[in-house]
């Protein structure tokens, strides 16, 4: 032990002096925050009016109108199918894309960097913009929705698949490489099975996300329950709109419950 309490000079200070970078970061954040508050013109009066309007909507929406339940359920099912098919295609495409994007599986670092950038670009573009592009390309309807969800799922899944692949324990991979196996053999024999639980979990999250997206995509003409919701709101049939919302809620919660069970099984 050092004498004269010399060891105390090494005690960390309670607070660290912030770096110039963090000071600038905080200034930018606060400036944007205040500007955001100012430009959106948030006032107590506007918030109160909004609350009253919401109450009026709820009062007019109750009780929910179940007269078109069968038709709405069919539309909801169509939305679910759109999400399922889009996510399935997206997941299938994501796997080879992730293998090309991962540092430990890509044939070259340049290719890995290029694919990673491409996935980032795909992810950066919001799904609504993809939907508008596909509506223009293939016309109104579920096909535009499926293509949107496929692309959106690639942006989501390929990133997480790739991160998981890079985190995998190198030992078992090296063990199969040491047998003289081909690269494909090593990928199929070690990387896919080791990453499988994570791939399934990510795909199920992508499906949950896709169902929520698919509802919104309908608002821009990509088919499904979104079209029904949009029509009901435009025609001010709030009781029917509430019925649609309840059905969406039931579907989303049911999907989450099922996917949680599957995740637990696989992991």
């Amino acid at each position: 032990m050092a004498t004269n309490n010399m060891y105390l000079k090494n005690m960390p200070k309670r607070l660290k002096k912030p770096s110039l970078f963090s000071i600038i970061g905080w200034i930018i954040f606060l400036a944007l925050f205040v500007q955001g508050l100012y430009s959106t013109n948030i006032t107590p009066d506007r918030l109160w009016t909004g609350l009253i309007n919401m109450m009026t909507f709820l009062a007019r929406a109750f009780p929910p109108d179940a007269s078109r339940l069968s038709f709405i359920t069919t539309a909801m099912f169509s939305t679910f199918q759109m999400a399922l098919v889009g996510t399935a295609f997206g997941t299938l495409i994501s796997l080879p894309v992730a293998l090309l994007a991962s540092a430990n599986t890509s044939p070259s670092p340049v290719l890995a960097g290029f694919v990673r950038s491409l996935v980032s670009v795909i992810r950066t573009i919001p799904d609504l913009i993809w939907a508008l592009i596909f509506v223009i390309s293939v016309g109104l309807g579920p096909l535009a929705g499926i293509l949107t969800i496929t692309v959106d799922s690639v942006g989501f899944c390929a990133r997480f698949f790739s991160e998981r692949i890079e985190e995998l324990d190198a030992g078992p991979i090296q063990a199969l490489e040491a047998t003289g196996s081909s690269k494909v053999g090593v990928i199929i024999g070690s990387i896919i099975p080791m990453g499988f639980p994570s791939f399934v979990a990510t795909s199920l999250y992508a499906l949950e996300k896709a169902i929520r997206s698919a509802v919104v995509l309908g608002l821009v003409g990509a088919g499904g329950i979104g079209v029904e919701l949009s029509t009901a709101m435009t025609l001010r049939r709030f009781d029917e709109a509430l019925m649609i919302m309840i059905l969406i809620l039931v579907f989303v919660i049911a999907t989450e419950k099922v996917s949680t069970r599957i995740r637990k099984q696989v992991i």
Binding site: P172, Q174, L176, T179, G180, V184, G189, S190, M194
Partner: peptide
């Protein structure tokens, strides 16, 4: 260095990956 989430049998089959050639033959 086993593949932990597959069967013991499958792990042993993977030993033949190099000499068998085509990966599917060891699944």
């Amino acid at each position: 260095n086993l593949i932990e989430n597959v069967s013991v049998f499958q792990n042993v089959l993977f030993g033949a990956l190099g000499r068998v050639g085509f990966f599917a033959k060891t699944l």
